[in-house]
Structures are given as structure tokens and as C-alpha cells.
Write a protein that binds this DNA or RNA. Structure first.
Length: 112
DNA sequence: ACCGTGACGAGAT
DNA sequence: CATCTCGCCACGG
């Protein structure tokens, strides 16, 4: 028992894995979906450990402004942008273009 | 065991 | 409109 630590980290990973290619979401959106209304920091921190997980497209997770705040955690400061562009997401000056248009809200897309 | 820090966000001043 | 503070949970020193 006690196997379920209810670590929000695992929950975050589950949501991030569901982000479709060409879409992006924000830390707050995931946090809100999980019930961590103000725990957006936790989502970002989970991403920091996401590199331990194989299928975590953390590049699709940006801050509320659409800024690539975590680009420095991809090994290379341009790695995150490269990955997003590879997904068909326009990025310029560390900011996602048409962010509101490609924004993927888990509460909305997963069927709140 | 205690304190500080962290890929954020929203509200208050 | 810009700046500051608090809240959230987990982990490092």
C-alpha cells in the first residue's frame, strides 16, 4: 500500500504526454487541470525532472506568456525552439507565435 | 530537521 | 502599466 504518493509530478507527466504535435500549453493550464491552481511552479519543476522520462515533450509546455522560459533546460538554449519548430510551431525571440491559436487546454481538449 | 530555491500565476500596491 | 508578494509542492544543502 502506500504505493500512491500522489506525486503531482507523475500527473504532470501524464498530461504533457497527451499534448498533440503542433500544439502548446502552459504550466498554469496543467496545474489548473490537476487542481494545483497556484501550483504552476510545481509543473515547471516536474519538467526539470522530466528528462528522466522518455516521452515528455516538455518543449510544448511554456509559460502563460508563450515564452520559452525553460529553454535553458534542454541541454542547449536553442534546443527547445528547434523542437517546437520541428512540431510546426513558429517561435521567434523565445516567444511562441500564434500562441493563443495553438494553445492546448487540457480541461477543454480532454473534455472537462 | 530547518531553510532556501525553483522551467509559474494571479492579485495587490 | 510596472513591480512586489504570496501560494503551491518537492527537493537540495
Amino acid at each position: 500500500m502506500s504505493a500512491d504518493k500522489t506525486n503531482y509530478f507523475d500527473l504532470v507527466y501524464q498530461v504533457v504526454r497527451e499534448i498533440p504535435k503542433g500544439r502548446v500549453t502552459s504550466y498554469g493550464a496543467i496545474a489548473n487541470y490537476l487542481g494545483l491552481k497556484s501550483g504552476a511552479r510545481m509543473v515547471g519543476y516536474a519538467m526539470n525532472a522530466a528528462h528522466t522520462q522518455p516521452d515528455i515533450p516538455a518543449q510544448r509546455v511554456v509559460n502563460r506568456q508563450g515564452l520559452l522560459t525553460g529553454k535553458h533546460h534542454f541541454g542547449s538554449p536553442t534546443r527547445m525552439q528547434e523542437l517546437l519548430e520541428a512540431d510546426g510551431v513558429g517561435v521567434e525571440n523565445d516567444q511562441v507565435q500564434d500562441f493563443e491559436k495553438i494553445f492546448w487546454d487540457p480541461e477543454k481538449e480532454l473534455g472537462f
